[in-house]
Design a protein around this nucleic acid. Structure first.
Lengths: 139, 139
DNA sequence: TCCATATTTGTAATAATTACAATTTTATAA
DNA sequence: TTATAAAATTGTAATTATTACAAATATGGA
């Protein structure tokens, strides 16, 4: 469970000082696995922290990503989305409703040609298309 | 070869009327497989077409993508890149030098869980890391 | 040639992100 | 406890990619 205590510990483990803002931002991302954009996070948290600045959200997310606590998902052309899931998985975005779905894939089975000697630090597997629900609505 | 005649034909096949601007923009992307951004394309072509407008470049690339002639690559956080290659391949971006490298992968061999009933129209497999050259320079 | 339509152009607007300086908070040592 | 330095947060202004839109230009058919 992601209790406040656990979040504090997790931040500390990643060399991030656990301020209220940081705890709340991480809590939101880890409890809402909807790959939120900066603005979504900001709009939700301003309700709890009325003095919150959007710059803080930007700074904090950058810090989290640098410290390898979260990852950014650039599946949306207009804004960066964030994800607290750290295991290897891809993202499907529905071009009708805009919803993002996670999918699992087996990275080891992919035969990648042309990447010998390349050091991999991050991977994004993004697929676009139409989700089952929107497909049904179209009929 | 991508002669002007071939480009004209290719545009026509994709239901795109071959204007000078369109031909030149497609020629640039297909001859320079560097995944150029809008600005790069514009800066190069303004030399040949002094009246060229950046809006035209934007409009044209959007049209090309809609007509399935090229694909967009959202590997760069700040700007959209474009690619004339249509076969399945992924992109590796070096976080040191910013260069983008193509790699091949076998999509059919990937075991994807959670995408039954999803209609796939586009896929982007992006990997970030350090290229061999930059790795050597760091030592 | 004339006219309708498509394309291109230029400018202004929009929106995500960053820069930066001021303010506030936190941690520490006297 | 108090003074002080460092870190974090905030708010505003600047930057930049992209889009909206209307005017100008080019194209093709009657």
């Amino acid at each position: 469970m992601d209790t406040i205590q656990n979040i504090t510990l997790k931040l500390t483990e990643h060399n991030i000082k656990p301020s209220l803002q940081r705890i709340k931002i991480y809590e939101y991302i880890s409890k809402n696995l909807i790959h939120p954009a900066v603005d979504t996070i900001y709009e939700e948290l301003i309700k709890e922290i009325p003095t919150l600045s959007k710059t803080t959200v930007y700074n904090t997310l950058k810090l989290f990503e640098k410290q390898n606590l979260i990852r950014s998902v650039n599946i949306d052309e207009t804004e960066i989305r964030y994800d607290a899931r750290k295991d290897t998985h891809g993202h499907f975005i529905c071009t009708e409703c805009g919803k993002i779905f996670d999918f699992n894939y087996n990275y080891n089975k992919i035969k990648i040609n042309g990447l010998k000697e390349f050091e991999i630090t991050q991977q994004n597997f993004n697929i676009k298309g139409i989700c089952p629900e929107c497909k049904n609505n179209k009929k």
